[in-house]
Design a binder for these strands. Structure first.
Lengths: 228, 228
DNA sequence: GAAAAAGGGGTATAAAACTTCCCCCTTATT
DNA sequence: AATAAGGGGGAAGTTTTATACCCCTTTTTC
């Protein structure tokens, strides 16, 4: 079996020791460095050019490991990065998979799983693990759909007037015409008129359809940020 | 081991026979139907409610299997779909992963791999296979980046006035201020003023930067379609 | 180095758009 | 029956926009 050099990146001594013990048992794996921060990791990666980097995410800050991975992809593209973390939340996973990582493994994984991850990474045969796959599939579908459908919606929203945008925000929050009128301190008739204009621009016959296409594409957050 | 019902969908007799042979060897797997088209597949899925559907992609047309999978997700959401195809091109894979499939397996896979795919799908533990993972990682990063950058640019473009949009279109075509003034039959000073306003909204110091971010995200076509 | 283009700031005015309100009405929804 | 949703016409006042002119500096181009 091919000789592999490994860099361990984790800010906790105990975690580094556990990994060192696991790797130490295998003669074809050798640790060429240990880093306690993202910064150190980037420097050591350039210096040692390891085959594999085992990278924790949360160090100096919540995403230090992801940023380090991203920098290493640029400065030391030959090193394969395995994210080895306790975090299995969507944010961590999606951020990680936006950089070119080989694998994403939970720290509680068995010795065998960690070694398998290293071997797979080295031979470019890392699958995406089941617990990641389901989340990634969903998110992938969402962003792909977003990309495909945004063009039309974009054109419509570009033509909305400032107060129409504000009313649209309120509609997305589920407010009725009456509530929106109260909120904006204007007559109900005014709101009715403007919603009518919004529907025309979207070419829809009722507000439900408009809200649906906005929710379907997760555009609410985006619309909510529009400020005139 | 739990009893699993399986639906085979493929327009080629020989392929269906091979799968039937593989499945027939295992007592806990039973074939409850065979379909030769996407349409048949949807009907049989509703009728038989199979645990697993082995689905070919290219049947009536190039993407019949993907469409069928999408419909089955809606009408028979309990059935797990395994795409089993000869196509490993990006289009097929990305389309497949936009619908909720359990796995994507190449037809030349060994008997063992196919059975493993079925077992994993049944127990909700399908990883994304290495040959798919690398492509999916790349595409995921691309569309995620698109979505992130789009949000900011979107907010800016939503605040542009009609004539600012027109001038932006001209700028993207590489026209100078003088040319745009001539094109719109207005004074040069007017255009200078409006471009100044555009730069402020984009928070950029020159038009090159604005054009660059528009081109970087392939937004020109989209902006060009905006009509007030 | 001169000329042209790009970019920033101020001011002003007519036209356009927006906001608001009123009236009327029909159709869903409850 | 009552309320909400949706469509259409009209009209007032206000705000923005589009346009133009002035001034200036910096950058690019020839």
């Amino acid at each position: 079996m091919e000789q592999l050099t490994i860099l361990i990146v984790d800010d906790m001594e105990a975690h580094r020791r556990r990994l060192a013990r696991i790797i130490g048992e295998l003669p074809h794996l050798s640790i060429v460095g240990e880093a306690q921060s993202g910064k150190e990791a980037v420097a050591l990666a350039v210096e040692e050019e390891p085959d594999i980097i085992l990278m924790d995410i949360e160090m100096e800050d919540k995403m230090a490991g992801i940023r380090a991975a991203s920098e290493i992809n640029f400065s030391s593209p030959e090193s394969k990065i395995i994210i080895l973390t306790i975090h299995k939340d969507n944010d961590s996973i999606f951020s990680a998979y936006q950089t070119n990582i080989a694998d994403y493994v939970i720290k509680s994984a068995s010795k065998e799983e960690i070694i398998e991850a290293i071997e797979n990474a080295a031979s470019n045969t890392s699958p995406i693990r089941p617990f990641v796959a389901s989340k990634l599939r969903e998110e992938f579908a969402r962003v792909k759909k977003f990309e495909e459908n945004f063009t039309h919606i974009f054109q419509v929203i570009a033509t909305l007037t400032p107060s129409e945008v504000e009313i649209l925000k309120s509609l997305c929050q589920g407010l009725t015409r009456k509530q929106i009128a109260a909120e904006r301190s204007v007559e109900l008739e005014t709101i009715k008129k403007q919603i009518s204009s919004i529907l025309k621009k979207f070419d829809k016959r009722n507000t439900k359809e408009v809200i649906r296409i906005i929710n379907d594409h997760d555009l609410f957050t985006m619309i909510n940020k529009i400020q005139f």
